[in-house]
Simulated assay, not measured.
Amino acid sequence: MTLAQLKEEIIAYSSSIGIDKIGFASADPFVELKERLITQQNLGYQSGFEEKNIDKRVYPDLVLPEAKSIIAIALAYPSKMKNAPLSKRDERRGLFCRASWGEDYHTILKQKLVLLQSFILEKVPTAKVVSMVDTGELSDRAVAERAGIGWSGKNCSIITKEFGSYVYLGEMITTIPLPPDTPIADQCGSCTKCIDACPTGAIVQGGQLDSNKCIAFLTQTKTFLADEYREKLGNRIYGCDTCQQVCPENKGKDFHLHEEMEPDPEVVKPLLKELLFISNRDFKEKFGSLSGAWRGKKPLQRNAIIGIAHYKDQTAIGDLEKLLKEDTRPVIRGTAAWAIGKIGTDQSKIILNAAKEREKDADVVAEIEKGLNLLKNQKI
C-alpha cells in the first residue's frame, strides 16, 4: 500500500466514525507561530492555560521524536438550541456558550482519535502516534490551518467552508510521512465585524487576542471580576459567542450531526438563582458532563451573581443577603455585596451596612463599599 492509498483509507475510515473533516500536514516546525507566541507572551496576552514551553508548541518532534506528519480533525457542533427556555422576570437565566453544549468535547474528540489511532496502527503496526485535544502541546488552530481544515479568522477561530467556525479541533502526530494537504487562503478580507463586536476589545487586531480581556477567559477565572468587565458579562455563565455570532461565514450554519453534542436546555440555560446554593454533588450531577464545568462551581456561581445584577432581579435580594452572611468564600460574599448595591432596593442599604459592621475580609469590605456607592449614585 502506498502512502497516498493509506491516506485515502484513513479519510474513508474517519468519515465512517463521524469525523466531519480531516486534513493532513507536515510535522515541520511552526516557525511563524513561535514568533507570534513570543510576542503574545511579551505583551502579556496569554491566558495562562496554554502549554508553558513554547518550543513544545512549535516543534512537533519534541512531543513525538521522528514525527513526520500531523492529522487534524474537526467535528461540527450546533449553533441553535431547540426548545430554549425563556428568561422571565422572576426566573432569570444564564447561558453557557455553544462550545459547552452537550457532552464535553474533549471526551468526544478523544474517543474519535482513539478509534482513528487503532485503525492506523492496524495498517502500520510500527508507527508511533500521539493525539491531543485543546490541552495538548501543539496549537490546534495552527495545525488545522496548515492541514487545510480552514483558515485562521480574525476572531482567532478556524473557519471552515462547510461549518463556519462552529467546529471542535483535535490532532494526531505520527511518524508516518503522509502526503500533506494544501492550506486554505484567508477569506476574511476587509471584514472587521468580529473586532468591532467584541464586548471588551479583546481582539486587538485581526488574529491577535488579548486573552486577559476575553470574556470566554474571564468567565473561567476564580478571583473577583474587574469592575470594567462586570457590565460586559451580562448573563453569560461560561464562555462567549459574540465574535462567532457576528461572523458572516457563520450565517445559516447550524449542524446537528452528533447526538452527544445536543444541549439540554435546562442545563445550558440554567436558572441563575438555582446556581447560588447548589451543592457540589448536585453541581457535578447536573453540569459535570459539560466542558464548562472544568473549573468547578465557584466561577459559575460568581458569574450567576453578576447575571442577577445585570437583570436587576429584585426577587434575588434575599438570596444575595444569605450569601453575604453565610458563604465562606470571599469572592462570592463580595460579589453578592456589589450585586445588592447594583440592584438597589429599599433594603439594600440596610443589608450592606449590617454586612460592613461584621465583615472581616478587606476585599469583601471593599465590595460592600462599591455596593454602597452604587446606591448613592441611585440616590437610595
Rank of each mutant, 00 (worst) to 15 (best):
A4S: 14
A4H: 11
Q5T: 13
Q5V: 13
E9K: 10
E9R: 13
I10M: 02
I10A: 00
Y13F: 15
G23W: 12
F24V: 00
A25K: 00
A25H: 02
A25Q: 01
A27I: 15
I38L: 07
T39S: 06
L43R: 12
G44W: 12
Y45H: 15
S47N: 04
S47P: 11
G48V: 04
F49P: 00
K52D: 06
Y59L: 05
D61P: 04
E66A: 07
S69N: 08
A72K: 08
I73C: 03
I73A: 03
K82Y: 12
A84D: 03
L86Q: 09
R89K: 15
F96V: 00
F96Y: 14
A99V: 03
W101P: 00
Y105W: 06
H106Y: 03
I108C: 01
Q111F: 03
L115E: 15
F119D: 05
E122L: 10
K123V: 08
V124H: 00
P125W: 03
T126S: 09
M132Y: 07
V133T: 07
T135V: 07
G136S: 03
R141V: 12
R141M: 08
I149T: 01
I149L: 14
I149K: 01
G153C: 11
G153R: 07
I158S: 04
K161S: 13
K161A: 12
G164E: 03
S165I: 13
V167E: 02
V167L: 02
I173N: 05
T175C: 12
P177Q: 14
D196Y: 07
A197M: 13
A197I: 10
C198A: 14
P199L: 13
G201I: 07
Q205W: 11
G206M: 10
G206S: 10
D210S: 14
I215T: 12
A216E: 09
L218S: 06
L218P: 07
T221R: 15
L225Y: 05
D227M: 08
E231A: 08
L233R: 11
D241F: 13
D241T: 01
C243A: 06
P248S: 05
K251S: 04
H258L: 08
H258T: 02
E259F: 15
M261V: 07
E262N: 14
E266F: 06
E266H: 07
K269E: 05
L272C: 10
L275P: 04
I278M: 14
D282K: 15
F283I: 03
E285T: 11
F287M: 04
S289V: 06
R295W: 12
K298E: 11
Q301N: 02
I305K: 01
H310L: 01
Y311S: 07
K312G: 04
Q314R: 15
G318H: 09
E321R: 11
K322G: 00
K325Q: 14
R329T: 15
R329S: 14
R329G: 09
R329D: 15
R329C: 09
T335M: 05
A336L: 09
I340Y: 09
I340Q: 08
I343M: 02
T345M: 13
L352K: 01
R358E: 14
E359D: 11
K360E: 07
A362Y: 05
V364Y: 12
K370S: 06
L372T: 02
L372Y: 05
N373Q: 14
L375D: 00
Q378D: 06
I380L: 15
